[in-house]
């Protein structure tokens, strides 16, 4: 090469700019299709607020979630008789501020979602890739095991697992991840089967790519779209399951301000103090709904079949 250094530098910057532009164009297109779905945008905003609240919990919450105000047991929310702005959403049976507990509880819910989805996604991708790529008896074995897991009612299986592992938030998360995993395995396998005979995979093989490279670098990136959608939907599922386990006393243990656990503690006050049950329930509902809406929007944006040219 007998190029002068200045032109070489020039081409370098041009190349870099073009490469960045290409990435940007992909993102712009993604956002266009995502933003067509108004529900998804609303869901995304709600979810973003939720994340912000969770991160800034100590700053946002008016009270410490574990402090018990003995002179304000079961105080109703501020707009009812007997309520006050000191405890905007009222207090529970031992005088803890519900709003603060909900705010800190969002940390647990999001944490549960992230951890569970990560475990299930990584495990599901690896197992599904192997099954779809190897075919034969490996595939059969893996898929039958997954079928067995899927044959159990998911919450029941999670309960059994927690019973074996012992109650607690971490064990509950592991149990939920195991229960959700087969969905990812099946989805990955189906996507791999669709991709593996495409010409570009064969071309990579002709170029000399080995099995691992074919699986993870060539095929996997093209299977991600349905997995991302499934991951968001599983995120909300994980939150729901964790709340259910918490409600049954098998998840997070009191006094952790986890939403499901809060519901469980409030069970006996349903008739006397509606706010103790309603607000944690609403928090779960809104969070799950928001995430599902985002998942819907992602499906619109990522599924090429729905794209109009």
């Amino acid at each position: 090469m007998t190029k002068s250094t200045s032109t070489e530098l020039a081409t370098e910057t041009v190349l870099e700019r073009e490469s960045r532009n290409a990435t940007k164009a992909m993102l712009t297109e993604f956002w266009y299709y995502f933003s067509q779905n108004k529900g998804a945008v609303i869901g995304l905003v709600v979810f973003a607020v939720l994340v912000a609240v969770a991160l800034l919990a100590p700053l946002v919450a008016p009270h410490d979630p574990d402090v018990q105000y003995r002179d304000a047991l079961l105080q109703p929310p501020f707009w009812q008789d007997g309520g006050s702005f000191a405890f905007p959403l009222g207090t529970d049976a031992v005088g803890r501020d519900i709003l603060s507990r909900l705010i800190f509880g969002s940390r647990f819910s999001l944490f549960i979602g992230v951890v569970v989805v990560t475990i299930a996604l990584v495990g599901g991708i690896v197992i599904g890739l192997v099954a779809g790529y190897a075919r034969g008896w490996v595939d059969t074995l893996i898929m039958r095991v997954m079928d067995i897991i899927l044959a159990f009612p998911s919450l029941l299986l999670a309960l059994v697992l927690v019973a074996i592992l012992g109650p607690g938030l971490v064990n509950a998360m592991i149990a939920i991840a195991i229960v959700l995993q087969p969905h990812f395995v099946r989805l990955t396998r189906a996507a791999v089967l669709a991709e593996v005979n495409r010409d570009y995979v064969v071309a990579a093989r002709v170029a000399g790519a080995g099995h691992l490279r074919l699986m993870f670098k060539t095929i996997l990136p093209n299977c991600l779209a349905p997995l991302i959608v499934q991951a968001t939907l599983s995120f909300s599922n994980a939150i729901l399951d964790a709340a259910a386990l918490g409600f049954l006393g098998m998840g997070a243990q009191p006094p952790t301000p986890e939403w499901g656990t809060m519901l469980a503690e409030a069970r006996e006050f349903i008739l006397r103090a509606w706010w103790v049950v309603t607000f944690p329930g609403l928090a779960i509902l809104i969070t799950v709904l928001a995430i599902n809406l985002v998942g819907d929007g992602l499906r619109d944006a990522l599924d090429p079949k729905l794209k109009r040219s």
Binding site: D199, Y200, A204
Partner: peptide, 27 residues
């Protein structure tokens, strides 16, 4: 080999530069 369908023979998630460099990288 060059395949018939130019829409299927390139990895949609791979930038052109990497498409071209892959054979060199591997061999």
């Amino acid at each position: 080999i060059v395949f018939q369908n130019p829409y299927g023979s390139l990895n949609p998630r791979q930038k052109i530069g990497h498409v071209l460099e892959e054979p060199l990288l591997l061999n």
